[in-house]
Amino acid sequence: MSAPTLRAPVREHTPVRPHLRAATRRPRRRRQRVIGGLVAALVAAFAVRVLLGDYTVTAPDFVRIVLGEQIPVATFIVMESKLPRAVLALLVGLALGSAGSLFQTLLRNPLASPDVIGVSMGASAAGVFALLVIGLRDGAVSVFAVVGAVVVSVVVRWVAGTTGGYRLVLVGVGMAAAMVSVVQYLFARSATYDVQLALRWLVGSVNNVPWATIGALAAALAVLLPLLVWLSRALPVLELGDDAAAGLGVGRHRTDVLLLVGVLLTSVAVAAAGPVSFVAFMAGPIARSLLGGRHSLLAGALVGAVLMLLADYVAAYLVPGVVLPVGVVTGAVGGPFLLWLLARGAAGGRAG
C-alpha cells in the first residue's frame, strides 16, 4: 500500500481590501454628512438673521426686495440693516473660520489662532493708529489694518524662527500684549470723541458697514479662498512637520505662504468689521469635534460663518432697544471656551 499523501491545511484568508475600503469610507461619509449639516445650518442662520427679529419679513417679500421691488418700510429695513449685516457676518465668519483652522492645523496647536498669536491685535493697533493719530477714515483705515497684520505676523515669524508652533504661539502672545499696550497709549493721548469712535471699531461690529466695504471684502475673499484651497493640498504633508515635509519634497516656503494667506484672510476681515474676538479660535475645535478629530478648512469656515450669524442675531436682540457689537457676544462666549479648552488639555495631560 502507498503511504497517505499529507496535505497542508487550508487556511481561510479574510479579505483585507474590503475592510480597508470600509475604513476609508467611514471618515469620508462622516465628513460629507458634517459638511452638509453645516451648510444647512448656515442657510438656516442666514434666514433667521434676515427674516426674523423685531421686524419680520416673509420669504416671498425678501425675494421680491432683493430682486428690486420697493415695499414700504420693508425694503429700507432689509437693504439698509438686515441684509448688509447678514452678508458681512457671513463673509467675516468664512474668513476668520478658515484662517483659524489653517493656523491650528498648520502649527499643530489648538491655541494658534489669529486672536492669540497677535495677528488680530496687529491689525487693530494699525487701525487705531490710523484713526486717532493720522485721522483717516473708512477705506484708508482698512488698508492700515491689513498692513499692520502683515507686519506683525512677519515679526512674529522672524522672532519665532523655525523651532515649531509652540514658540510661535508664545512669541505671538507677547506681540499681542505689546500691541494692546500701543492701543492703550493711543487712547490715553487722544480726545474722548475720537476714542469712542475707535472703540466702536475695536470691539468688532457688523453694524452700519457700507455696501462698498462689503463688496471689497467679497472681492478679497474671491481671491484668497480659492488660493487657500489650492495651497492646502499640501496641508496633510505639512502636518507631519517641516523636516518630514522637506523629505517628501514640500519645502518650508509652502508653510510661510499658507501662513501669509491666513494672515491676509484675518486682516481683511478685521479691516471690514474690526477684530471680532474668538471666532477664529472657536471654529477649528468645533469643526474637529464634529469630524471626530479630523481637520477640515471647509468645516472650520462654515462653523465660523454660523457662529458670526448667530452671534450677530443675539447681539441685535439680546437687550431690547440696544444693538450690541457682535464682538461683545463672541468675546463673552469665547472666553469660557478658551478656559474649557485649557482645562481639558490639562486634564488630558494629567491623564496621560
Rank of each mutant, 00 (worst) to 15 (best):
A125C: 07
F144L: 04
A287H: 01
A149T: 06
G327Q: 00
R294W: 12
L52Q: 10
Y313I: 06
M79T: 12
D312T: 06
Q184N: 14
V333F: 10
S81V: 14
A315N: 01
M1P: 02
V133T: 10
V156T: 06
N109I: 12
T75H: 05
V303W: 01
A99E: 02
D243N: 13
S98N: 01
V333R: 04
I286P: 02
A301Y: 05
A86P: 04
S142K: 04
V63L: 14
V209N: 06
L136S: 06
P210N: 10
V183F: 06
A188P: 00
G284C: 10
E69K: 09
V261M: 11
M1R: 10
A315H: 03
P285V: 15
V303L: 09
F337E: 04
I286Y: 06
G164T: 03
V319P: 02
L290K: 04
A95F: 01
L91M: 08
A188G: 10
N207K: 09
P210V: 08
A343N: 10
L338V: 08
W158N: 09
V48F: 08
A347Q: 09
V150G: 02
V319F: 11
A244K: 11
L309R: 01
V261H: 09
P60C: 09
S101F: 06
V319A: 11
S232T: 12
G165N: 04
P27Q: 14
M308C: 09
I134Y: 12
R233A: 15
I77S: 07
G97V: 06
A44I: 11
W201M: 01
P114V: 06
R350A: 15
V180Y: 08
G174N: 00
A86I: 04
V223A: 08
L199T: 04
W230G: 09
S98F: 00
A311D: 00
M282N: 13
G161W: 07
G334C: 07
R29Q: 13
Y313E: 10
L131Q: 03
A222N: 08
H295R: 11
T192R: 08
E80D: 13
L310R: 02
S120R: 08
G127R: 03
L227W: 13
V39G: 01
T266L: 14
L309N: 02
